[in-house]
Amino acid sequence: MFNLIQNEWMKLWHKKSTWAILVILLLVIIGVGVLDKVFTEDVSNSDWKQEQQAMIEDANTQLQTPDLDEWSIQMYEEQKLMAQYRIDNNAAPQVNQSMEGNMAFGASIMVLITLLTVIPGASIVSQEFTDGTIKMLLTRPVSRVKILASKLITIFLFGFTLIIVTIILTTVIGFILFGTATGVDLAIIDGVVQQTNTMNDILLTYVYSLGDFTMSILFAFFIGTVFSSPSIAIALSMLFLMMGPMIIMLLQKYIPVEYIWLTHTDLTQHLRKEFFIEETTLLMSLTVLVIYAVIFMALSFMTFIKRDVKA
């Protein structure tokens, strides 16, 4: 099995498209960091206590406006709470871009990483068919299950490589360009002001983004295995990846979309507590995703094993 993965890894990195993918990712990460550095002005942070005091007074004035809607009231109340907390606890706000901020940016481009992994994911099997190399690959003393598994594992390894590159690069670039954070981020949870752990948030974003990452790869891999045409596979997977929410919106009227995987792929909705269709539990989302993951893989393996190779 190790030999087979080694083979797939070797083939992957001998393709120009793989390097193009890596270059695109590097350009986005470096480019955004540099643009941030060039276009955001450094703001002095020395008199932040007066500013916070001003914010409290501003909120108080606003709250006296008659017929204020509920949403605004809550917003100003929270503004007051946070400013008071900063003054009481000597917790300066974040003003400039920081290493942590850049790392959070890294976590936010998981969609891009997923997109970039879907491309080889959709073509790793289908390309062998269009090139005719599949017949050289399958007439060996190795079962088709192992060959397909080695390809799937290789794609996940590639995706994880991109994630690790992103984490390292956003941290290093962030540190070089901006240095570590000087302030403290706050959040109000259940009416109580708390200091947020930025690192924890970043980590959670990465972890929750793995839902979309995994499902998109499995879907692309499945399409690539069934259709054995890289262009159709890439196009279809991209369509589902980008238009997923729209497809769900359209289907919503006709079928119970809570049983469609696209409704649940974005697990970060559980982090943000803002739900795409309606509130669900993490358990429900994970269950739906696991079921679909098993279906996609079962269909990929079944078609690959049963297929008569004519290429």
């Binding site: 001998h14 090139d131 005719g132 017949k135």
Partner: peptide, 16 residues
């Protein structure tokens, strides 16, 4: 298949 060597039509290799 362990004892078989195969060339099916044109031997398509990984050109890259």
């Amino acid at each position: 298949i362990a004892n078989v060597g195969v060339i099916v039509e044109n031997p398509e290799m990984y050109k890259y």
